[in-house]
Design a protein around this nucleic acid. Structure first.
Lengths: 261, 261
DNA sequence: AACACTGTTGCGTTTTCCGCAACACTCATT
DNA sequence: AATGAGTGTTGCGGAAAACGCAACAGTGTT
């Protein structure tokens, strides 16, 4: 089941397919790989020996099965310097903008604030006033809550300080309520902001994970509350989650671990 | 300048060396790679075509030069899930980050270099994303010295080669001095790096042992020298050691054997 | 317009790799 | 113990694939 195009260097193609298989399956033995690739055991054995010598694959000390090795991690570290979140997220954000018709944002954490690094404006005349580079508090925005939902309580306290500033009547200013809210974010996979920063502004945001499994950014859809009702907003959830997952994957977050909620 | 051992599949080795070069240099052209590898242009051209078709390398849209591609990032994501020391170390690293307030790293050995597989940013929040996967030399980093301190001199020479590259005035470039330094690491149980790789960067690292008693990883705390003074650093030693011991125990290393320095 | 580069093709040869075995080894089962 | 079905790792020879050599098509520079 090996796919080699004309002009390819066969053994290199095989090597890459081996890595792909190992990436999907986790760990495999020589025989298992040879049957999947329809290649003789000996070929696979020699191929793996070469890859192992270079650290591209490694064998589990107990099971002796082969898996992806540490060299790939360092190569990816170098590759990541060539790729930034904004570039790899552009297409997914555009699709999300088409699907919802509302303003789409990409935000990252900067200290104790959330900062927008990408924004696609809504097609409607009335749209929110976020812009690239705008900073907002963490505890009263959908993107903010999505970004910090996976932090420990201690880190959260350190970031936010003791007092949670009130912006609207809906702002969550009590720590127990905030922790409960964040637990809910973790549970369902996305955060909702209902006029907690500005009256009339609602949003839904999902976290983007990077290579190491940490939250790198958050994708959000936002709009005015008179148009984006609660039911419309929750209808956007699956699109926002899909976009966030797609971006996470392009950053190296393994698809298998993505919680489809 | 190509290193191929007996029994290797040549083209695969070449492909990996191409990736290594691209990882170090960032972006290179066909001719540049061919001179570095002492291989004909045509060979490199075909090799890169194969790698590009699989997404392992990609070319810059403007310069047309080649760099590492997105496929490596997704492979690395899968590779990271295999390294179980990451999972079992997370909580201990978080505690260490709280105790010290500085950047905490977890690193493993990859050939003749040390590669970071986990990183918790300092409380003095300085954003440097993409550190996971960063490679550094062994002889001038705290984690590197902690990782190789228990190797024999022969193994060490084989890993590092004859020449020890200088990065700063503090870099240890003489073999006798390095061996003495590693003996000191073994004696006290942790390693210190004082601006030996980058001016202004200091670190303290301790080895993590696995079930069999081998060094599996290294935990480190690092920070800028203006904030992390020598006395502050040595004050962190007991916390780093405690974290390293805790992780070792979670990997099955018997607590009794842990040398408490 | 000539030059110095780049990177990408046919082509023929030789090198390299693949498949076939037989082998060493572990672990259940008889 | 001895057999059996599994692993994965070797020599060996033939066959095929990759390499180096060119010549080629583009660039931008002198």
């Amino acid at each position: 089941m090996i796919q080699i195009e004309a002009g390819d260097i066969r053994s290199v193609s095989k090597a890459i397919q081996v890595l792909r298989l190992l990436g999907d399956a986790g760990e495999l033995g020589v025989t298992e790989l040879s049957t999947r690739l329809r290649v003789h055991k000996s070929t696979v054995s020699r191929l793996l020996a070469t890859l192992e010598r270079h650290g591209v694959v490694s064998r589990h000390p107990v099971t002796e099965k082969f898996g992806l090795g540490p060299a790939l991690i360092s190569l990816a570290g170098a590759a990541l310097t060539r790729i930034d979140v904004r570039a790899s997220s552009r297409e997914h954000l555009e699709r999300l903008a088409e699907q919802t018709g509302e303003t789409v944002n990409l935000a990252i954490l900067d200290g104790d604030q959330v900062v927008n690094i990408e924004k696609l404006p809504s097609a409607h005349y009335i749209r929110d006033i976020g812009w690239i580079g705008r900073r907002s508090p963490l505890h009263c925005t959908a993107t903010g809550k999505a970004l910090v939902a996976h932090l420990s309580v201690a880190e959260l306290r350190r970031l936010l300080g003791a007092r949670l500033k009130r912006f609207t009547p809906q702002t969550i200013c009590a720590w127990p309520l905030l922790e409960e809210e964040l637990a809910e974010v973790r549970r369902r996979g996305y955060a909702i902001g209902q006029e907690e920063l500005e009256p009339g502004l609602v949003a839904l945001a999902a976290p983007v994970y990077e290579l190491g499994g940490r939250v790198e950014a958050a994708v959000s859809v936002s709009g005015p509350s008179f148009r984006v009702t609660a039911s419309a907003l929750s209808g956007y959830a699956k699109h926002v989650l899909a976009a966030a997952h797609a971006i996470s994957r392009s950053l190296g977050y393994p698809a298998a671990q993505v919680k489809v909620g």
